[in-house]
Amino acid sequence: MATTLLELAGVWAARGRTVALRDVSLSVPRGARLGVFGPGGSGKTTLLKLLAGLYHPSRGELRWSPPPPPGGLGMVFQRDALLDSLSALENVALPLAGRPRAEIVAREALARVGLGEDAGAKRPIELSGGMRKRTGLARVLAANPPVKLFDEPTAGLDPATEREILDVLDRAHDASGLTVTASANPEPFFPRCDLALVLSAGEPIAFGEAAEVARRGDVRRLFGAE
């Protein structure tokens, strides 16, 4: 059994007047690929933002051992979260400022998600929704932090591009870190995760080996497979 990297003990989270997470407990070993699945509004984004340190639990405890260093964690937001004043390439290069060959690394990352020179030179507002999503992914791939959080990484992509992106994300996984992927449509993600957490209205209804969770009747019903 690998060492535990992340532990949540009875974590609750409030978003405004909504209780977005109720009593979530889980333990994730180093090197794991964790899927966080649930219908719209079930608390997936809230959980990822807690992991990113953007909010704090209203109750319970969230422990990293050890905590990721500055720049050791990267999140791809559901909304693309790019700066409109910069080109796509400059957006990807931004977290690399000061590193050698920043621009080459940024260009390579864009190429990995299928975006070429011409797309890289454009502003985010001049790109399609799917291209913006891929630029946001490239930004995290270029920075390559050991802990990667992906919120709906393939939403809005056509099926062929989705498969390519899933492969790229698989290869980007860091065996000494952690990859967490959130999606309301878990079908393509189950086989690519080690562990899965299923949320329903903020409540954790399943947590365990991804393959086992995927077979459970209540989980299949939640996502309309039966």
Binding site: K49, F77, A81, P95, P145, L149
Partner: peptide, 17 residues
Amino acid sequence: GEQLPALEALGVDIDRA
């Protein structure tokens, strides 16, 4: 729009950038 949190999560120094 979460651009600043996204950059901060990636370790970008918002003050400098």
